[in-house]
Amino acid sequence: MSIKHGLLALLAPGPKYGYQLKAEFEATTGSAWPLNIGQVYSTLQRLEKGGQIEADGVPDDDGRVVYALTPAGREELAGWFRSPIAQESRPRDELAIKLAMAVNTPGVEAREVVQAQRRQAMSSLQSLTRAKATVPEDDLARVMVVDSLIFAVEAEVSWLDRCEARLRKARTAQTPDVKTPEKEAVQ
C-alpha cells in the first residue's frame, strides 16, 4: 500500500497539514486502510528529505506546518499514475500454501480446510456488500475502493469453489460407489 503516493496525490490540489492528509486519505479510501498519524508524519519527513514536498511557510502557533508538492513531487506523482501496478509483488500466499499442505498431510481433511475458508470468505463478502449498500453510488472513490475489496474476496471464493469441486471429484473417483446426482438444470 503506497501511503507515499496517496499523500502526494492529496497534496496535488494544494498545500495541507499532516492531520488533514490523514483525514482525507481515510475519507477517500473509506477507512479500508486506516492510517495512524505517526505513519503520516514519518512518510512526510521522508518525502521532504527526498525533495518531493516542502514545508510551505512558517509553522503555526501549535508548531504544525503546511506541506506542498515540489516539481519533483509532481513528477513522481504523475509517474505513479502512469505506471500500472505489477502483480508479482504479492507476498507468499499463506492460504495456497495451507491448502497444498492440507492435501498431502495425513489426518487432515482438505475439504474441511477449504470449507472453513469458504465460509470465512463468504462472510467477508457479505459484510463488504452490506457496507457497499450504504455508500451512495455517486461517491465514486469509496464505491471503487469497496468494489476492489469485493472483487478480490470474490476471486478467493471462486477459487475455493473450484478447490471444493476438485476435491469432491477426486474423492468420487476414489470411491466409485458414490453416485453423483445428475439432475440439475432448471429453465
Binding site: A32, Q115, R118, M122, S127, L128, R130, E164, R168, P181
Partner: peptide, 24 residues
C-alpha cells in the same frame, strides 16, 4: 452451502467484518 446433495454449512450476516469499514 450444498454439496453431494446435502446442506453442509452456512454463513450468517452477523459474522465480524475482516476490515474496519466503520466510516462506510
Amino acid at each position: 452451502f450444498i454439496s453431494d446433495g446435502a446442506i453442509i454449512d452456512e454463513t450468517t450476516a452477523d459474522a465480524p467484518a475482516v476490515l474496519d469499514l466503520g466510516a462506510l
